[in-house]
Design a protein around this nucleic acid. Sequence first.
DNA 1: TTGTTTCAGGAACAAGTGTATCAGAAGAGT
DNA 2: ACTCTTCTGATACACTTGTTCCTGAAACAA
Lengths: 209, 209
Amino acid sequence: MPRVSDTRSRILNFIRHFLDRRGYAPTVRDIARGCNISTPSVVQYHLNMLEEQGFIRRDPAVFRSIQLVERKREAISRVPLLGTIAAGSPIPVPAPDSWTTTPEETLQLTGELTQDKKDIYALRVKGTSLVDAFVDDGDIVIIQQITTVEDGELAAVWLKTRQEVTLKKIYREKGRIRLQPANKTMQPMYFAPEEVEVQGKVIAVLRKL
Amino acid sequence: MPRVSDTRSRILNFIRHFLDRRGYAPTVRDIARGCNISTPSVVQYHLNMLEEQGFIRRDPAVFRSIQLVERKREAISRVPLLGTIAAGSPIPVPAPDSWTTTPEETLQLTGELTQDKKDIYALRVKGTSLVDAFVDDGDIVIIQQITTVEDGELAAVWLKTRQEVTLKKIYREKGRIRLQPANKTMQPMYFAPEEVEVQGKVIAVLRKL
DNA sequence: TTGTTTCAGGAACAAGTGTATCAGAAGAGT
DNA sequence: ACTCTTCTGATACACTTGTTCCTGAAACAA
């Protein structure tokens, strides 16, 4: 048991909160003020200890350079919001070079949602044509750009003859393709393989309210 | 067309890279050095412009306080997944002290989804009782724990007499409460105010596939 | 005791750093 | 040409801030 109720961890917590609240690191004197320490030198002492113990990292002689080792850059992927998905209009499949051009907007998602997959883009749903996939007007679908999907996976498909885009579970059957709505109470549709063009695989849907 | 290939965007990019590489913000002079600008005052000028235009935020007289507005929403919050939401069982409202206890699981979400709100938890949907809110079995609803919501907001409500939980848009009317399904084709339901208990406000729905 | 380690307090220095001011150049529009 | 806005340059000031040096108290071990 430490002598005081551990100044050290109090300092660590103060740094955490300061970073959360202000967005940049505190100075020695900020910490002193926040932890009721009367002088910078004491803070300096503890910071040196914390750095030795591997809790923080600092660049010498650089102001506000304290970094928390525990805040290892979490994997955030920036997913481009490339446009809208509507029943009557084709999905705007991104050109290979357009990944770097400025999209309409960018979503910041954790790897938990993107499942760390590559070639991902997002589309905003316009209209209520996708209600049979439990997707409402204004929802955002996250799509991985691939041309073939496994049986049973939810795919974004373009129906050539109908000039229509839809989200359906796809099943290959003998000589035809079955498109099954996510809503189990609804009936499947059948198409010739050449009528169906898989634009991508839906890996997530999100709705902000 | 700007004279040079826009010093401003060069500065912005430099700040981005500096933050990524060093973990803290550059000083005026760091930027000057990195962008081949001969004097701090020019950088200062452009930083003021960038702040006016809403690209960055700075705290006056605080060293290394430049923050990229575009990364404001990057903060990852850990949202506890507290259980399931099913038609027949009450929503497991977290006890005030249980926030720190270990939840079933934890979601990592960016501020973009949590909208930087407080007192947020997540529930996994079990069953198809919420289809009228376009919520499917297995979806995850993000809920902010508040007891009153604005008219028209999607709320998680417990219907006492029915012993049932549902997600509905809530409207206060004279002497009664109207619960409107998110699906506009469906009919509203009416209840006496004391029958309806608001458990929280739905701020997002997400579906991982 | 004695010595050693850890922690707190005070003061001061030197460098880093935001900022203001003045001056002037370069375009754009009239 | 003229004015106006936008941008660049140089210098200087004042404050912020990392750092060092000193003193001293408290705990612990030999």
